[in-house]
Design a protein around this nucleic acid. Structure first.
Lengths: 132, 132
DNA sequence: CAAGAATATGACGTAAAGGTAAACCAGCCG
DNA sequence: CGGCTGGTTTACCTTTACGTCATATTCTTG
């Protein structure tokens, strides 16, 4: 199961462009191996890129993503190192929980609006369906 | 309770720069009144800006935010209009729920990492605390 | 071996979201 | 009245995250 990918292959699978992958590499977020000059991506690279893309969807910059990307990929080194990892992890959890609250609030408001509008339409005897 | 604000006042309260507020206006996200040439912001403007900022924290572009901002601010007009509002609202809810799943996954992974690292430190007889 | 097809590097372009600086008014204060 | 304080444009600058060539090289396949 240790598939290897070319840029275009992996890019296609993850629905990004090869340019994007090279860009992430430029920024140090991934370091694919090379066969000669040609980039070769492993399963691990793929995993990191998926994390990057999820981070982006959540609105983080590549710089921020770079900062916590390594958390996923620690081998137990020295105790001091692990302590740092722990604190970073906790900080990141806090940040994400804050976003979660933003999201929850927004969703609640929108659900409120949804039912209000539904009720309005129902009171008009209008079907809530239709309308693109 | 109908306080009015100047750019700098409101900007300070919301922790953004006046430039940002003018920029949002430029993009049509807010339309403060004017006293002569001077911008005057109402409570309603303030509310909209808070929504904008929350949207930004969730990683949406100003263009996207602009598209759903009016949902919060509909007066029941014609039935057709409301139907459209309903469908837009539902789309937006879907999008936010998707982000919620991203967030939930990420949090779960990080919590996994957190306890793993905690256990590692515990096994080393090291205190999980300390380390900035 | 000639002719694509895929990759690489490098340079330049671009859209979004402001920051920053310049030049100009209006109101107010001592 | 002179000068600050805060406001308004206009214009250009910056950073991020790629897109888009141009050019060179390497692979592969008839």
């Amino acid at each position: 199961m240790n598939k290897l990918y070319s840029v275009t292959e992996l890019a296609a699978e993850l629905k990004v462009t090869p340019r994007a992958l090279r860009f992430y590499e430029d920024k140090g977020l991934i370091v694919p191996q090379r066969a000669g000059k040609t980039r070769v991506y492993t399963h691990r690279d793929r995993g990191r890129i998926i994390l990057i893309l999820r981070g982006k969807r959540l609105g983080f910059s590549l710089r921020e993503i770079a900062e916590w990307l390594d958390l996923y990929d620690q081998d137990p080194g020295q105790v001091e190192q692990m302590r740092l990892t722990l604190s970073k992890t906790r900080k990141r959890i806090k940040a994400l929980e804050a976003r979660q609250r933003d999201l929850e609030e927004t969703l609640q408001e929108l659900r409120g609006i949804e039912t209000a509008v539904e009720d309005f339409l129902k009171s008009k005897g209008a079907d809530a369906e239709a309308a693109e």
